[in-house]
Simulated scan of single mutants.
Amino acid sequence: MPLTTTPLERPAPAERAFVDALEGYAATVDVDVASRTATVDGDRVHYLEAGDGPPLLCLHGLSTTAATWLPLFDALAEHFRVVAPDRPGRGLSAPVDYATVDLREFGVDYVTGLLDALDVDATRVLGNSLGGMQALHLQVDHPERVERTCLVGAPGGLSRKVPWTFRATYAPKVGPWLFRRSIADSLADAREQWTLINVEDDGALDDALLEVGLAGERVPGQTDSLVSLNTNAGTLRGGMHERFVVRDQVAASAIPTRFVWGTEDFFWPPAVGRPVADAMPDGEMVVLDDHGHTPWLEPTTKARDAVREFLVD
């Protein structure tokens, strides 16, 4: 179905191209999807919206955009008002220099600001990777805003350790250069990167989603925002900053939480999350064999089914 868009004020050519790519991908998803914007602390936050039920907030990963969630919209929009924002500095949301903000505080404040702008007091939350970390920070810092949390793919926030190939991008001076070199600039490069980091089997990975990512990197300020966020997320020696790790606080949280975790996740194995889930008063773990970091984009429906079952309950 076609994407319903809210016209941007004086859009740049690259922004129009991003909308075109988003419309192309949305056309492959059998659900009514709206592209909207809200103002949070004076800045634009772009989000995708579908459905007309209780709210469900979807928070995407480090290098992706809200479009990553579109394959789940058909399973969720019949039950929820699904809201999937582009994190500031991604997609059509305003760019931000993450060297000038407190990453944890900013990541939570933009989410609560968006909820306020949408008149949402509390919501169910779906998060992946960095978005999973933001979901856990929201759960710990503002439990009154969260009804239940589903983490699909390994979330940040449970361990300081990251793969050495990724930790190298935290290195002073050379790290940002290495990270920029890893950003795809062609369809073939994008598919190679996704297969390396996000999916174990790219058989269901649509070129149209990859085109959205490529178009997003051409929007002014977005790649710089991404590099600044990654550069300030950790150190070469220590890995992810300790401030982001909320393992103990999450283990003590009474908010119903499900981890949906692939055995082939690039960042962390399920063993990182299982003790947390087991310690939680209402936590659980679903392990998916031969699934990667974005398991709902694998050729099976196992991740989608696990997410819907928990969130709809």
Results as ranks from 00 to 15, higher is better:
residue 36 R to D: 08
residue 135 A to I: 01
residue 206 D to Q: 11
residue 132 G to V: 00
residue 10 R to C: 08
residue 105 E to P: 04
residue 254 A to H: 10
residue 181 R to V: 02
residue 308 R to G: 01
residue 89 G to R: 11
residue 257 T to R: 06
residue 153 G to P: 11
residue 36 R to H: 09
residue 213 G to P: 11
residue 61 G to E: 02
residue 12 A to L: 15
residue 7 P to A: 01
residue 128 N to C: 07
residue 134 Q to G: 01
residue 197 I to E: 10
residue 227 V to C: 12
residue 280 M to Q: 15
residue 121 D to L: 07
residue 233 A to D: 08
residue 168 A to M: 12
residue 226 L to Q: 14
residue 80 F to W: 04
residue 148 R to L: 00
residue 229 L to N: 07
residue 127 G to V: 00
residue 113 G to W: 07
residue 181 R to L: 10
residue 141 D to N: 09
residue 285 M to F: 03
residue 194 W to S: 09
residue 193 Q to H: 13
residue 260 V to T: 00
residue 176 P to E: 08
residue 108 V to M: 07
residue 238 G to S: 13
residue 203 G to D: 07
residue 289 D to A: 13
residue 143 P to Y: 01
residue 84 A to H: 04
residue 62 L to P: 08
residue 161 K to M: 10
residue 249 Q to F: 00
residue 15 E to I: 02
residue 158 L to Y: 05
residue 64 T to S: 14
residue 8 L to H: 05
residue 89 G to S: 11
residue 103 L to I: 11
residue 216 G to W: 08
residue 217 E to S: 15
residue 296 W to Q: 02
residue 307 V to M: 02
residue 220 P to C: 05
residue 7 P to W: 00
residue 281 P to H: 08
residue 156 G to W: 01
residue 211 E to Y: 09
residue 263 T to E: 10
residue 204 A to G: 14
residue 257 T to F: 00
residue 23 E to M: 09
residue 49 E to H: 06
residue 57 L to C: 04
residue 30 D to R: 07
residue 288 L to M: 01
residue 81 R to D: 09
residue 218 R to K: 15
residue 204 A to N: 13
residue 130 L to F: 10
residue 37 T to A: 09
residue 68 T to S: 13
residue 114 L to R: 03
residue 4 T to R: 14
residue 220 P to H: 09
residue 189 D to N: 13
residue 182 S to P: 11
residue 123 T to K: 10
residue 152 V to N: 01
residue 299 P to H: 02
residue 44 R to N: 02
residue 223 T to L: 15
residue 38 A to P: 03
residue 92 L to P: 09
residue 73 F to Y: 04
residue 37 T to N: 13
residue 123 T to N: 12
residue 48 L to A: 02
residue 241 H to C: 07
residue 65 T to G: 09
residue 135 A to H: 06
residue 62 L to A: 12
residue 111 V to A: 02
residue 79 H to K: 03
residue 144 E to K: 09
residue 218 R to N: 13
residue 136 L to E: 14
residue 47 Y to Q: 03
residue 111 V to N: 05
residue 160 R to K: 13
residue 275 P to R: 05
residue 172 P to L: 10
residue 236 L to V: 08
residue 161 K to W: 12
residue 120 V to F: 04
residue 182 S to K: 13
residue 261 W to T: 01
residue 96 V to A: 14
residue 21 A to G: 14
residue 143 P to C: 03
residue 290 D to K: 12
residue 226 L to C: 11
residue 93 S to E: 06
residue 93 S to C: 07
residue 83 V to F: 02
residue 59 L to P: 06
residue 76 L to F: 00
residue 28 T to W: 02
residue 144 E to R: 10
residue 150 C to Q: 01
residue 171 A to R: 14
residue 218 R to E: 15
residue 274 R to K: 14
residue 75 A to Q: 05
residue 203 G to Y: 03
residue 94 A to D: 12
residue 12 A to G: 13
residue 111 V to Y: 07
residue 307 V to Y: 00
residue 11 P to A: 01
residue 72 L to T: 10
residue 69 W to L: 02
residue 19 V to W: 09
residue 22 L to Q: 08
